[in-house]
């Protein structure tokens, strides 16, 4: 009779389904398909897709590449901690280290140019959260993620860490400059 008793009709699976129910199932199914196609459509025609390029690495290997990039391309240092500001060269390859509790170094980009930013972590999981653009990417130790990005507006951007990484998590703030 009701949902807390066994079905009254023992052959319940032979009972016809009401038209309205069928219609709703069809709507839900078609909508699922639309949402499925939408993601594929965006991979083909959309301009915001997360990069598929990633490599296994180690903190040491990644740090060595990043230090070389910093040594070759630093244009000045900022703050009393002397954080290097690094202009990403014309080949567009830039490195960004996530570690307890900083984003290193400061990157300088140009509007409209396309960059390949290599992201990895030296220790725990971190979260690359570019503000106020609001792009959020997981950064995982042992994995080098090569994200192609093209800034669309000049300005000063913050990188907030949005994956909890211990007691200094909330002080882990980085910076990206985008020039004309």
């Amino acid at each position: 009779m009701s949902a807390i008793l066994p079905p009254s009709n023992r052959l319940w699976w032979k009972q016809p389904i009401d038209k309205v129910e069928w219609a709703w199932i069809a709507i839900a199914f078609v909508w699922g398909m639309v949402m499925f196609v939408m993601m594929i459509y965006w991979h083909i025609y959309g301009k915001q897709n997360l990069s598929n390029e990633a490599y296994k690495t180690t903190p040491e290997m990644f740090a060595a590449k990043a230090e070389k990039f910093i040594a070759e391309n630093t244009i000045r240092t900022e703050t009393d901690q002397n954080i290097p500001v690094v202009k990403v060269p014309d080949n567009g390859e830039g490195y960004l280290i996530a570690r307890l509790w900083s984003w290193y170094p400061i990157l300088e980009l140009e509007k409209g140019k396309t960059y390949k930013i290599h992201l990895s972590s030296m220790d725990y999981n971190h979260g690359f959260s570019l503000q106020p653009v609001n792009i959020n990417i997981q950064v995982i130790p042992g994995y080098e993620h090569v994200v192609k990005m093209t800034p669309t507006k000049e300005g000063t951007y913050a990188i907030v860490c949005n994956e909890y990484c211990g007691i200094g998590h909330h002080s882990m703030l980085g910076r990206i400059y985008v020039k004309k």
């Binding site: 703050t79 009393d80 901690q81 954080i83 900083s102 979260g127 959260s129 913050a158 907030v160 860490c161 949005n162 994956e163 909890y164 200094g168 998590h169 909330h170 002080s171 882990m172 703030l173 980085g174 910076r175």
Partner: peptide, 14 residues
């Protein structure tokens, strides 16, 4: 952010 103690980023260099 979620799981974040301080919207003012106390202790951050910027």
């Amino acid at each position: 952010s979620r799981r974040h103690w301080d919207m003012a980023f106390a202790g951050a260099p910027f």
